[in-house]
Amino acid sequence: MKEFKILAVLVALVGITYYGIEPYAHSVMHPEVAAADFTFKDLKNVDTKLVGNAANGKVLVETNCVSCHGIEKAGNPAPMPAADAAAAYGVTPPDLSHAGRIYDKNYLANFIYDPVSAMHLNHKYPVGGAKQFPMPPFPLPAQDIMDMVAYLQSIAPKVADDKAGHKATFEAACGRCHNMKYASIEATTPTDSLKTYMGATPPDLSQHIKSRGEHYLHSFVNDPQVLLKGTSMPRVGLNEKAQEEVIAYMEEVGDSKKAERETIGLYVMIYTFIFAILAYLWKRKIWSEVH
């Protein structure tokens, strides 16, 4: 019994210290922030209750968007090579094939209406400022915008819920600016243009699942300004499913041995437990001769 008392004191001292330097210190250094908002309820320029007409949307998209944006899945290649587009606009404009799938409907509609306010980049592109965001606002009637959204949703390809599918989402959502060295993914915008456009080279995301962790990414990707006020990274506007796919891909690349680790971990612990029991029985036998 005395040994259990000693053990209890030891566990208490170690436990209190652990609590202080891990959970408690982390809560001080990284305070909780507002929960991720996948409805983007701050955006109210477009009435998203209107039902869109994809056929009309197709006409509007082809009139308004394809001079800058490619839509590979609808047979519209990018109007110019990525590097030339980056030189012209600062950053390579995204291909819109996946736009209807990965972006939240409300976000996408409001983005077309006014990109800067949707991205939370008013600090970088203030109204009347010298710098202009390369894509102009399209303050069209709400019905037109919803038609365009309906069209983009109708052409977006389905992707499988596997690594290849997650990769497609990652490339559509992050691949214009971020490298992912450990998956041999290079940003489609050349580094020099990116550095000028963003003010700094966006980080390689190979290890962000470890350095930032899922909890941080969940909030950060949803709205970078919440955790990193003033950053030039835009709010991308991913819906919850697309964001989960992006984070899943970051884990598949950055922590590729997770499944192996957890399986082997279980086996090792079972093995060690059996060893501990045998060792206890042996100890009992040996010490019975001396006590």
């Binding site: 060690t272 060893f275 501990a276 045998l278 060792a279 206890y280 042996w282 100890k283 040996i286 010490w287």
Partner: peptide, 10 residues
Amino acid sequence: LSKDFFVLGF
């Protein structure tokens, strides 16, 4: 050592 192995196991 028999006692140590027992402690070591846990």
